[in-house]
């Protein structure tokens, strides 16, 4: 098998914007999807076609109209700005639906966007079964490559009207998040002080994200788009207590820390 590209999977997400009055036409929801990733190694369209059609012929049903993400990280010519339009039409003739790219340079991403592709950020990449290991009976073995997630640390109060966003990782706040302030993270949120404002964790759809606070006095908490607004004061067993918020079977759960 040629080594022009490589199949693997990455979780990603889609978020639709919430539209306010009158009567929401759409709702803010985050969901996690697993998408096949085409890891591009060379840009030669002929070679790509050859490899892909061979792969597809092996499992036709699986690839029929499958959305795919193009991974630019492993290009042998890292700076090359690909002809995404040509690449996309090739993929479509193979009955694949290219939806976006991950990694790559700013120029590459720009070219991808111009060709109608999205740029997907974050996402851990699960190494798919490599061709050579397929012959062995190790089909189950999946090595997880987790994108190293950095944490953003804030040690000043987050005040009314301010917003802090930890992109691609966790947020750690060592001072109060006051009423009217908003803290957002792609990952978890830890607040070692009162949370009086809003906290939204896992905003790209990570349903395993959590919010952990030293003193729960929140106006709103949200995990992966599932949110709860507290118009009234929180119940006594939570208010002012150390608490955590997580999703349990898609239901937002608030519990005091023990």
């Amino acid at each position: 098998m040629q080594d022009d590209l490589f199949l693997e999977e990455t979780p990603t997400s889609s978020v639709t914007e919430k539209v306010a009055k009158p009567g929401p036409a759409v709702e803010l929801r985050g969901s996690v999807f697993t998408l096949p990733v085409l890891r591009l190694k060379r840009s030669d369209l002929g070679a790509i076609e050859e490899t892909l059609s061979e792969r597809i012929s092996q499992s036709k049903k699986f690839f029929e109209n499958a959305p795919v993400v193009l991974d630019l990280e492993h290009l042998e010519t890292p700076a090359e700005v690909l002809d995404f339009a040509a690449l996309c039409s090739l993929l479509r003739t193979l009955q694949l639906v290219p939806v976006g790219v991950r990694q790559g340079s700013a120029e590459q991403q720009q070219a991808a966007v111009e060709a109608g592709l999205a740029v997907l950020r974050g996402g851990s990449v699960q190494e798919a079964v490599a061709a050579e290991s397929k012959d062995k009976k190790t089909g189950e073995v999946v090595k997880q490559v987790v994108v190293p997630s950095k944490a953003l640390v804030i040690d000043q109060p987050v005040r009314s009207g301010q917003q802090i966003y930890a992109q691609g990782g966790d947020l750690i706040v060592l001072a109060p998040v006051n009423a009217g302030a908003e803290v957002i993270a792609d990952g978890n949120i830890h607040i070692y002080a009162p949370l009086r404002g809003r906290a939204l964790a896992g905003v790209l759809g990570d349903a395993s994200a959590r919010i952990i606070v030293q003193s729960m006095e929140a106006e709103l908490v949200s995990i992966a788009g599932h949110y709860q607004i507290f118009e009234e004061r929180l119940p006594d067993e939570l208010f002012g207590k150390s608490a955590q918020v997580y999703l349990q079977e898609m239901a937002l759960t608030l519990v005091p820390l023990r």
């Binding site: 005040r159 009314s160 009207g161 006051n178 009423a179 009217g180 302030a181």
Partner: peptide
């Protein structure tokens, strides 16, 4: 107090 909090945020930013 809420408005003052807001102003403090602006002073800091």
């Amino acid at each position: 107090v809420r408005d003052s909090d807001r102003i403090l945020g602006i002073l800091a930013a």
